[in-house]
């Protein structure tokens, strides 16, 4: 009877934990199969334990090159989208001007548009302008779809900032430039960082839009897609797991630093 009551009381938590498992299990599978030594080309069934792939992460032709391209594009796209997006966000959050509602709509639309539509349209445009597909077309596309997410993240942060803080800075002899550098930017930083991080993740992971604008360039997701037909090398699991662990370590480190800072203060 007590067990039944316990289950009833914690039904939501049990359901939540099951959902969480649903989210995490594929990552665990990726992790486990990064230590597999598959029989044949397909890494779907467990054969036997091996650290080969971890010792030779670049042991398959083309993969690390595509990884490099993806990272390079992600870095540039993040910088581009963050700079443009932050400026746009400040304009939208801080000023009332003609065309503000239209601009908000323009920012919202790319997020409400299926990727395949955006990718195909931009690809058509490049094609007809006879622009050579490659690094630059991918970068342009990535900045385009990351921009809205940066604007949204930064705008939310800037709107929640107390405008009196900047007025206080001006009142305390800070010129507009100093006010921006010493007060506005540090206060908006968490929003900008969130937008940048999101941009990086979106750009690094994008397959659909990229596939329409890449030409012969192969990004990491495109490599994975291509290899899925022929049989994915184990190294792909290694990269996936490494990214996952890196993210977890970074988040934990961030938590630790924040916790330490709180404890010291």
């Amino acid at each position: 009877m007590r067990a039944v009551r316990w289950i009833r009381r914690n039904l939501v938590v049990i359901a939540g934990v099951l959902t969480l498992a649903y989210l995490i299990v594929p990552n665990l599978v990726v992790l486990a199969f990064s230590f597999n030594k598959p029989k044949g080309r397909y890494n779907y069934t467990w054969n036997h334990f091996s650290t080969d792939a971890w010792r030779h992460p670049c042991g398959v032709p083309g993969m690390c090159g595509s990884l490099g391209l993806s990272l390079r594009i992600a870095v540039y796209a993040t910088i581009g989208a963050t700079v443009l997006g932050t400026m746009t966000a400040f304009a939208l959050a801080r000023y009332r001007f003609r065309g503000r509602a239209a601009t908000n709509m323009l920012i919202f639309l790319p997020m409400a548009m299926p990727e395949v539509v955006m990718g195909a349209s931009l690809g058509t445009l490049f094609l007809n302008m006879r622009i050579q597909f490659g690094f630059w077309t991918i970068l342009i596309a990535h900045i385009m779809f990351c921009l809205s997410f940066v604007v949204t993240a930064v705008k939310a942060r800037v709107m929640s900032m107390d405008p009196r803080l900047e007025q206080a800075a001006q009142d305390l002899y800070a010129s507009p430039a100093q006010t921006f550098l010493r007060v506005t930017l540090p206060l908006a930083a968490p929003g900008i960082a969130a937008g940048a991080l999101l941009s990086f993740a979106l750009s690094f992971d994008d397959y659909i839009i990229t596939s329409f604008n890449a030409g012969n360039s192969v990004t990491f997701p495109m490599y994975v897609w291509g290899s899925a037909q022929r049989g994915t090398p184990v190294q792909v699991n290694v990269i996936g797991t490494a990214m996952f662990l890196l993210a977890v370590v970074l988040v934990l480190a961030g938590q630790l630093v924040a916790g330490r800072r709180r404890a010291r203060a």
Binding site: R164, Q167, A168, L172
Partner: peptide
Amino acid sequence: AYKRPVNTVFQNYALFPHLDIFENVAF
């Protein structure tokens, strides 16, 4: 504002949350 020899104590103070007390006062 930044060229006027006046200073303000704001409603709800508007202390800079990212700076400590010393740096707030030294601003």
